[in-house]
Computed example of a mutant assay.
Amino acid sequence: MDALLLLLRWMHILGAVLLVGGLCFSRFALLPALADTEEDSREKLQESIQRKWMPWVIIAITLLLVSGLANFLLFNSTVQSQGWGDGEWMKQTSYHAIFGVKFLLALVVFYFASGLVGRDSGTAWIRSDRARWLGLTLGLAVAIIILSGQLRNLHTGPNQSFGAELGVALGVDFVPNDTAEENRYKSTEAGSAFREQATTDIPDESADRIGVE
């Protein structure tokens, strides 16, 4: 199971790097560079880039969809089997709501990312203003990353044993170290021996005074 979860995580990260990295490069490097070229050359370059980049966009979307849904199903199964929050943990943390928003935003990002590199006439309106829709798609991708971070924090579970792990049980009076040291010598045999030795070691000041007189 651990190997499967690790593989799914790698798939998800790789897909995100491919898709978001390609969008960033296109918006902040490729488009400004193409703006300095002649129109005929620009159209040819854009068509060539779209044709070569489209398979990678499809791969990235596939990796994200497969790994994301698999991770969700496996995590949901773990929560149910371990009984987090008596079966109410998902509702208490709004996990399903956050995941639903993230999933819907991801579908929008997939649509725009596909339309930007596609050649279908139905998505030609996206390619007619690449800078605007690339910026919007990147903004949605950032929102998805933020939601993903929140969901990742929830994967730690309810943390019911957090207080116990600190070494001090809640509701128990804590005895300071000085008091503990003092009590140790009051209730043990070693403490009695220590007190007797301390008493015999005290010098007799009265005898010293008689000798002096």
Rank of each mutant, 00 (worst) to 15 (best):
G211I: 10
G87P: 06
D36N: 09
K91P: 07
Y185Q: 12
S41F: 06
S114A: 10
E189S: 13
V108R: 00
E189T: 10
N183D: 13
A131S: 12
G87N: 03
A198M: 15
E39L: 15
G15H: 04
L73Q: 11
V109Q: 00
T93W: 01
A124T: 04
L105N: 01
V17E: 02
P203R: 09
L73S: 11
Y111M: 05
L6N: 08
L73V: 14
G122F: 00
R130Q: 13
T123C: 10
P158I: 05
A124M: 07
E213S: 13
G115M: 00
D40P: 11
S121W: 00
Y95S: 00
L166R: 12
T188E: 03
A193R: 15
L134F: 04
N159K: 12
A180P: 05
A113C: 03
V175I: 15
K102E: 01
G21L: 07
Q46I: 07
N153G: 14
A193G: 13
E88N: 15
N71M: 15
C24Y: 09
L134K: 01
I202A: 12
L147F: 12
L34V: 04
L19C: 02
G100W: 00
F25C: 10
R119N: 11
R209G: 05
I210F: 12
F174H: 12
L69D: 02
